[in-house]
Design a protein around this nucleic acid. Structure first.
Lengths: 143, 143, 143, 143
DNA sequence: GTGGTCTAGACCACA
DNA sequence: GTGGTCTAGACCACG
């Protein structure tokens, strides 16, 4: 369930982040095709239009390009863009949390404690898309 | 800018989190009044209706109660509720970020690095509404 | 009939160009609201979704900005952007025509003759949206 | 790049216009064969199906005819038809541009200025398929 | 009332 | 089969 229809963040944007992640994880590689709009729509149990909007956004970002009648492909520098955008998404969440914590008067030690707790909790719940193993290309040991 | 109109999280929910924070930080104390709807609306540059909806939500949560004609007050146990809800909000953001990072195949060291970067970046940008000093009652020394 | 459903250029893009033109012509001015999505949809006899897509594109271009619950407004520098984009659209058409003409082996004198003919023909048919009179602000005597 | 996959005008139609131009320019002459579907598909970096559709359209227009097993040939009066259609295509673009300009409140002097700019810009970029010199049969001295 | 998102289902151009 | 566009109609957040 990589998309949550009850989240406040729009589904199409969740899909964009999802694809960013898959590219960053090396699942989708430059000049290889992304799943077809219809196929991904079925996989994610959403409407094709929603996937299309996500793909359109990816194209606008320069992460993907479209070949009429053939499909949507990862751009040559798509992996780089996707990685930086993935990190941006992650940091955005972190910063939101930190802002909230600071506004509540929490100090750095407390914030770190909350973060560590989250890190461990997610580890257990993390039987999600376990695409991440120790032997995937292009991750771990990054900037 | 305690409220971001471009965020995907509804404004009234941002206001709720904002109040949680102020209560947790000891700015608003049990049985003391919250700012009037009108005043807060002006302070946050938001429509009064939106503030009202937030106050309704706070009342539903048991964090505040209304005295007709007098205003909205922090509930007796409001500080405790607010604190746990603030932490929950913070952790929610952290977990979202961690989920995203894991989905992108990033490992714990990388994730920690991103978190540290966020922690320092926010520190600099953090010339926000620092109504709260480091030594207010009820913070530092979390559960 | 500012939009032609039979054109090859998508309706939403026609709407974008249409708005560019209206802004350039001074009909819509900075910080004033554009017609509501629903209203323009009715006026143009298209689906509100189509108008919305156009407005979204205008926002992406920096020509307009959205205020939730209030409407879509012309951006401060929207007039400038719109003007340059209008001119770009015009020149794009001209260049396409010139390309075609050159590819057909036509020389500049012939091309000019065709252009003049078009200029005069359009003048007669031009009982379209005659928003343009001799006394409108901001046009005639441009770069 | 005689064919632009990003254009809104369908590729097969671009090919039709392209052939019109080649015929008008005297590159393809009446009762002589057009390039084979396969060859043109390769030259234009396009799918053979698309070329075939263009050839069908040319046949429908009376500009070309098919001899089974031999190929597609320029019709006897193909040069005349092609020329008028080429000019029509050119003028269509010009009129579109003029319409846009008028809708934006631009006056004839401004429009002419934009046209002249386009005429000069295209001249420089015009290191295209200059298979045609200035002195080919059937051009210069238009109707 | 405003805009923003989503769904369902249709038609077209292209491979 | 692919993506691109459009419609009709729904629900939500906001004013």
């Amino acid at each position: 369930m990589p998309v949550d229809p009850h989240s406040h963040v729009p589904i199409y944007e969740q899909i964009v982040e999802h694809i960013h992640g898959r590219i960053t994880a090396g699942v989708f590689r430059p000049d290889e095709p992304l799943p077809s709009i219809r196929a991904l729509a079925i996989e994610l149990l959403v409407n094709p239009n929603t996937v299309q909007r996500a793909y359109q956004e990816l194209e606008r970002q320069g992460v993907a390009y479209t070949q009429k009648g053939l499909g949507v492909f990862v751009a040559a520098n798509g992996a780089i863009s996707a990685r930086s955008m993935s990190e941006a998404s992650v940091c955005e969440r972190f910063e939101q949390g930190i802002d909230l914590a600071r506004a509540a008067g929490l100090g750095d030690p407390t914030i770190r404690r909350l973060f560590d707790r989250s890190l461990h909790e997610v580890r257990e719940t993390s039987s999600r898309h376990s695409t991440n193993g120790p032997s995937l290309p292009g991750e771990e040991a990054s900037s």
